[in-house]
Design a protein around this nucleic acid. Structure first.
Length: 923
RNA sequence: GGUCGCGUAGCUCAGCUGGUUAGAGCGCUGCUUUCACACAGCAGAGGUCCGGGGUUCGAGUCCCUGCGCGACCACCA
């Protein structure tokens, strides 16, 4: 341990003065760098524990969502690091194809340009430059909030290494027949000019209209069939009208022909039992194969043509097979404007029957919120069902658990109904699809290395213009970051599979489920055994915080105001399993009070303790003769054991035994708020409020007993700091390194210190509780009788009521009478005076009394006693009834019955005492 | 439309397999600047555990139902 100048701690903790230097010190010491050689899987001496960070978008700026997500991960990884694991938290960023491209396009728009003005190469270069310049921002910010990542392994989804992983993944899937080119209706964003996956096209409920349109029979204009549609502009691409074969209303019309208004094209009336619901609308459906996924299926079934009437930009156009369906006056008109015009034209033609309001779910682009257009096109797809099987099985087999439990059902439901994944994006920013087309012989080449010519005919080849969905690189993250596709690298062997995956539920499908599928397909193993889905950060109106809504909180503001530890503590203490975190962006003082208050308190405890314990090394606990320990010592050490047990129970187990979760462990652990509360209660309500107070006299007196107090104090606080380090790493480091504790193997940094273990020599210490009871009793009496705080009173112990425990009680109170006297500000002794006074009965049967001759208000005291007696009577009656009920005594567990009987005895004794009191007071 | 969840103190939430007098933080009231700490200490107020039924010796906890919220999924045009 390096010698440090012994400086007096300042009276207040000033985080901003120390955090940056401390963090740098940690990095210089290599505290967060994981060593694959130490992993048991490489023959090392430690279990590996790995978390891969959900990579933030490379353009992201830190917000509370990141703050929450990364604090949770940091708490877990710091816990495991102390627990002796070779802990790796692997950070990185995501190139975020569509999101980043949008950022640059917005910049260009500000300059009056589009990406097409620049051209592909220049656009990608510009984006790369932007990323190179600003891409490190978010990671720098994570350092600022104390994230203990292994920065030497920082990854990026568009780096050369990860690009080779992406290409390898594509080729492997293609070779396995799981990637194919599909011609079908996909979701199209007419603003981003790209296709989207099903997950990227988000539903939202909207009030639209259902337009009823009459199509007249071609050979009998008197007769007609009426269809209902929400998107009348697409009627120009209709190729048929479908009815249900069993629908009596339309049976005669099947096989006949109607004329499509405006387009003036004859189309058949067909029967389809799958795609038509006779109950909905008019029971007759227009079939528009190129602009509706359902219609595409029906169109395919009936081998109908598929004319396209919308341009990629979402304007009316005569596309493939459309001929002149779109009349000149509609060409180039935006789809929503065209909707109005088509409706007007239909009205003029007398074809519009009615318009009724209609709420339905409309899909929007998850990046720019533009209404998505179903569009017929050629895209690359991944066949998902074979990939989903092992991902489903792993959850059923308990090799993967999802917390909170309710998300598991959502996961299963999604995988059971999975559809193929459209991975083509008509973007420029991303991994270019590794497919080449030969123009001479129509050969398609899928290759790991760029081909220069067709491998069949030697002709020129051109690469597919599209890039891959950004999630196609993300789903490889748990192993691509460890060096895959290289085989058996030390990192892969040491750290794959990883352990916990911590993220928000929003990306369960986008990312988590696909990572699991990818892990099984590419690595043959699950990527992690625990998925922990935490809540969302919201404001006081439960609205999700976002920059655009202006209700966000900048974690760096909080850090500047209260410090990183306060930020972290507040977030973790408030994080119930699966619950959202509510914070008020308009009142940071109030929102972060828990953390701020706690950090201040911890500082004050540390300052007092360090000052009073001094800098001379204390004895280690095992060197102290236990007979020299006093009740308070045994009590605090016993309480420490309880706190350690509670923390461990709240946090663990860290991993499943042999890869499979036991039923009883499946839902346990990662209860971060419970862990925090256990540690807080120990250090504040037990160590500071009671033990620290009890040692003041002993420390001042010095001598052997003072030495024991010093040692127990230092040891208890040392352990408390260790329990708290994962939550508040900065302040605990500062205090811990100053503790005069030296057990021979103490690390220089608390972050690397060992996690506290219970000491079974101290267990179930209860006698000190009686002292606390006595003090509380005196305090209560003082408050009840409004005795001035400065007034010194006489308090006495009356053991006469507790014949059986009298000697023990007397001994307990003899030992701690000084402590009681000081903290309760009284002269305390065993005096059986007969003076009139007020008393409180302790659980042992002894009584605390203070003489109040001339002060006591008999009537008030009488009323109080009567009320108390009535309440107790009622409770006792109920308890008696319960114990007299054979149903209870026979069927309830023995320990419960025993508990209730003990309670009954206790209450009866108390009742007798109270009854005496009432008699003497009320006459 | 399908699936799932929630409704406990003024606010945000714990309460895990039914079993002490239902808890915490923040807020509130009173007292105290007592030599670690007023971002504190001490004492205290505040709950028909959403309503109604049921199962049980016993229900905040399990079942049914009503009301009020919310989430996820979804090819009813």
């Amino acid at each position: 341990m390096t010698a440090r100048p012994e400086t007096q701690l300042p009276t207040t903790f000033n985080p901003s003065e120390v955090e940056a230097d401390l963090y740098k010190e940690w990095l210089d010491a290599g505290l967060f760098t994981a060593d694959p050689a130490r992993s048991r899987r490489n023959g090392g001496d430690r279990e590996p524990f790995v978390i891969v960070m959900p990579p933030p978008n490379v353009t992201a700026v830190l917000h509370m969502g990141h703050g929450l997500n990364n604090t949770v991960q940091d708490v877990i990884i710091r816990w495991r690091r102390m627990a002796g694991d070779e802990a790796l938290w692997l950070p990185g960023t995501d190139h975020a194809g569509i999101a980043t491209q949008n950022v640059i396009e917005k910049q260009l728009a500000g300059e009056g340009k589009t990406r097409f003005d620049l051209g592909r190469e220049a656009f990608v270069a510009r984006t790369s430059d932007f990323v190179a310049e600003t891409g490190g921002t978010i990671l720098e910010q994570l350092r600022a909030i104390g994230a203990s990542c292994d920065w030497t392994r920082t990854a990026y989804t568009l780096s050369p290494e990860l690009s080779s992983a992406v290409r390898e993944a594509f080729v492997l899937l293609y070779e396995a027949g799981l990637i194919y080119r599909g011609h079908r209706v996909i979701h199209w964003c007419s603003r981003c000019l790209t296709s989207l996956s099903d997950e990227e096209a988000e539903h939202s409920e909207e009030t639209g209209a259902l337009y009823h349109i009459r199509y007249s029979l071609s050979d009998d204009p008197e007769k007609s069939i009426t269809i209902a549609t929400t998107r009348p502009e697409t009627m120009l691409a209709d190729v048929a009208v479908a009815v249900h074969p069993d629908d009596e209303r339309y049976r005669d019309l099947i096989g006949r022909t109607v004329t499509l208004p405006i387009a003036d094209v004859a189309i058949p009336i067909i029967a389809d039992s799958i795609g038509v619901d006779p109950e909905f609308g008019t029971g007759a459906v227009k079939i528009t194969p190129a602009h509706d996924a359902n219609d595409f299926d029906m169109g395919s079934r009936h081998r109908l043509p598929m004319p396209v009437v919308l341009s990629p930009e979402g304007t009316m156009a005569n596309g493939a097979d459309a001929g002149t369906r779109v009349p000149p006056e509609l060409l180039g008109i935006d789809r929503f404007e065209a909707r109005e015009r088509v409706v007007q034209m239909l009205k003029h033609l007398g074809a519009l029957v009615k318009i009724e309001p209609h709420t339905h779910a409309v899909r929007h682009c998850y990046r720019c919120d533009t209404v998505v257009e179903p569009r017929l096109s050629d895209q690359w797809f991944v066949k998902m069902r074979p990939l989903a099987e092992p991902a489903l099985k792993a959850v059923h087999d308990r090799r993967i658990r999802i917390l909170p439990e309710r998300w598991e059902a959502v996961y299963i439901n999604w995988l059971e109904n999975i559809r193929d994944w459209n991975i083509s994006r008509q973007l420029w920013w991303g991994h270019r699809i590794p497919v080449w087309y030969c123009d001479s012989c129509s050969n398609v080449i899928v290759a790991r290395n760029d081909p220069s010519a067709c491998d069949k005919c030697g002709g020129a080849v051109r690469q597919d213009e599209d890039v891959l969905d950004t999630w196609f690189s993300s789903w490889l993250w748990p192993f691509s970051t460890l060096g895959w596709p290289q085989k058996n690298t030390p990192d892969i062997k040491a750290f794959y599979p990883t352990d916990d995956l911590v993220t928000a539920p929003e990306i369960l499908f986008f990312w988590v489920a696909r990572m699991i599928m990818g892990g099984f397909f590419f690595m043959g193993e699950t990527p992690f055994h625990t998925v922990y889905l935490h809540g969302t950060v919201r404001d006081m109106k439960h609205v999700k915080m976002s920059k655009s809504l202006g209700n966000g909180i900048d974690p760096l503001d909080v850090r500047a105001l209260f410090g990183t530890d306060a930020l972290r503590y507040t977030v973790i203490a408030g994080l119930g399993m699966g619950a959202d975190v509510m914070l008020d962006p308009n009142d940071l003082e109030k929102s972060f009070a828990p953390g701020r208050n706690f950090v201040t308190k911890l500082w004050k405890i540390g300052r007092f303790l360090l000052t009073n314990v001094g800098s001379e090394k204390v004895q280690t606990l095992d060197r102290i003769d236990h007979s020299r320990l006093r009740r308070a010592d045994r009590w605090i050490l016993s309480s420490l054991n309880t706190a350690i047990d509670e923390c461990n129970a709240a946090l663990g187990p860290a991993r499943p035994d042999r890869g499979v979760w036991k039923e009883n462990e499946l839902r346990s652990g990662l209860r971060l708020s419970e862990y925090t509360e256990a540690a807080r209660r120990f250090v504040w309500n037990e160590l500071a409020d009671w033990y620290l107070e009890s040692t003041k006299g002993r420390l001042a007196a010095g001598g052997e007993d003072g030495e024991v107090a010093r040692a127990v104090l230092a040891h208890s606080f040392d352990s408390a700091l260790r329990l708290l380090q994962p939550i508040v790493p900065f302040i605990t480091d500062i205090l811990w390194r100053r503790l005069p504790v030296d057990d021979g193997e103490r690390d220089e940094y608390i972050a690397r210190a060992s996690w506290p273990a219970r000491n079974d020599a101290f267990n179930g210490e209860q006698e000190f509780e009686l002292v606390r009871e006595a003090i509380n009793a005196i305090r209560q009496l003082r408050a009840d009788y409004a005795i001035a705080p400065g007034e010194r009173i006489h308090a006495s112990l009356d053991v006469s009521a507790a014949a059986s425990n009298a000697d023990r009680d007397r001994a307990i109170f003899d030992d701690d009478s000084d402590f009681i006297a000081r903290i309760a500000r009284c002269d305390f002794g065993e005096v059986n005076d007969s003076e009139a006074g007020a008393s409180i009965l302790l659980s042992s049967g002894s009584r605390i009394r203070i003489p109040l001759a001339g002060v006591i208000d008999i009537e008030k005291e009488c009323r109080k006693a009567r009320t108390e007696l009535e309440k107790l009577d009622a409770q006792l009656t109920a308890l008696d009834a319960r114990l007299a009920n054979p149903g209870f005594t026979d069927r309830a567990p023995a320990n419960v019955v025993a508990q209730e009987r003990a309670k009954q005895l206790d209450w009866r004794a108390r009742r007798a005492q109270l009854s005496d009191k009432v008699t003497s007071l009320c006459g």
